[in-house]
Write a protein that binds this DNA or RNA. Structure first.
Lengths: 243, 243
DNA sequence: AGGAGTTTGTGAACGCGCGAACAAAATTGC
DNA sequence: GCAATTTTGTTCGCGCGTTCACAAACTCCT
């Protein structure tokens, strides 16, 4: 039996809209904190960095939560969006790979405030297991199964080197995790039905570099290719221990 | 005088393609490291996690670097993509905000191997200035101007709390930075011509949570909104010190 | 109560990106 | 040298997402 995709009546929300809902949620929170009780689509759009037509269309997928001639009640809309995203209660999350980045993530208090709770930190390195990071004792990666099943964890974060990422993902899927946030610079292969999102710092910087190059109008001579494609040496492993 | 966007003949590369070029570059590097000298679009597409038609179309925007009936020369194509992105030489980068995340980024060796060099770490906190992080002495944020002008830095990374992000961005633009990678959970307002990309962990997790909620078919009762929209308290500041 | 002024929600046009399908070009075998 | 095979580069149709523009609905003022 395949899981029904729409809990409510056949409302399907475009992926592009889903990706913006968290931005709206944050903007609403910011507005609420400055004491604003009501806002127009124009106000909220500005706060969220989008245009108001898009905002209204996005919100229209959720329902009619505004009042014509008035605008939106900040708290009410905030709750409706949070409910739609599914962050009215906390989701337990496990982080695998407690290197430099993993530790930074473990210390990230934004998790808790935005609907997530770091339940466990895991690593395969015996030197790391048992050490306390961000108030949690690092668990052995071998205990993933136990931890995940015990607490019904469905979201996992991968912060390992690229070389370990696929095997960690495989294991995560085996034990029942169905959403993965991947920080390792590697393409993950997962079965149907498993959601993967990736965060890749190098890629973001390279996209910026591309546009910078265009701005300056500088183009390399298309000829000599011995000019080294950056020094991509044997670092393909170690670097990912950090991000 | 507005900067011309296309260094070569009016070749314009779609944004979606630009975002995938770094992925291809990484896949090619991986292939090269396993000793493969030639690959088909099918091979590369698999390694990059896209379909081959899309890959070929993407590459066609760059030029005709393949050989029909044969495929692509791995090293040659790798160089061509690197040149197109602009990472045949290193870009100097400054990181502002040396908290938990900033330090993790500073230690990220993938910068160097992918075409970037962390030139300086800056923070406004006097307790942090002077401390050594990742082999660099943390500089005073007030010295941004000097550092940027001296080394022609055009790419800046913001890893500060959300509250400081906008003012840091403003200052960056003032001193001549035209591309910003923003890790702070805040919408940045920048002038025309300045590129901003954002990396937001909470948003990625919330997108996963949305789909998880759909999978499980669980829907909150649309009624009571006093059920707390997560505990978004006074943490809106502190948490961003970490991410 | 009614008109003027706001602001939402949505229908329709437009443009971009994706994927399939195919023609062109190269290699391989005979 | 020629046919068969492989694989690229490109053309075309389709669907998604964005934006415009406007009708519906609510408030406020007289």
């Amino acid at each position: 039996m395949t899981a029904r995709t729409s809990p409510e009546a056949g409302r399907v929300i475009p992926e592009a809209t889903v990706a913006r809902l968290p931005v709206y949620l944050r903007a609403l929170t910011a507005l609420a904190e400055t004491g604003i009780r009501t806002c127009s689509s124009e106000d909220l759009a500005t706060a969220a960095g989008v245009n108001s037509a898009k905002l209204r269309k996005d919100l229209s997928y959720l329902g009619s939560y505004g009042t014509r001639g008035v605008g939106y009640d900040v708290d009410y809309l905030r709750y409706q969006i949070a409910r739609e995203i599914g962050v009215t209660h906390d989701w337990p999350v496990v982080i695998v790979g407690i290197g430099n980045l993993g530790q930074a993530l473990a210390n990230y208090s934004g998790f808790r405030s935005r609907g997530f709770r770091v339940l466990a930190l895991l690593d395969a390195d015996p030197d790391l297991v048992g050490r306390e990071v961000a108030g949690l004792a690092v668990s052995d990666f071998a205990d993933l199964d136990e931890i995940v099943r015990e607490h019904d964890v469905v979201i996992g974060v991968i912060a390992t080197p690229a070389t370990s990422a696929q095997s960690v993902a495989d294991r995560m899927v085996e034990v029942g995790i169905s959403s993965i946030l991947n920080f390792a610079p590697a393409v993950l292969n997962v079965p149907e039905g498993i959601d993967v999102r990736k965060v890749d710092l190098s890629i973001e910087l390279q996209i910026l570099a591309f546009h910078e190059q265009r701005k300056s109008g500088a183009a390399d001579v298309p000829g000599d290719m011995d000019a080294a494609v950056a020094t991509d040496d044997a670092d393909t492993d170690e670097l990912e221990e950090v991000l």
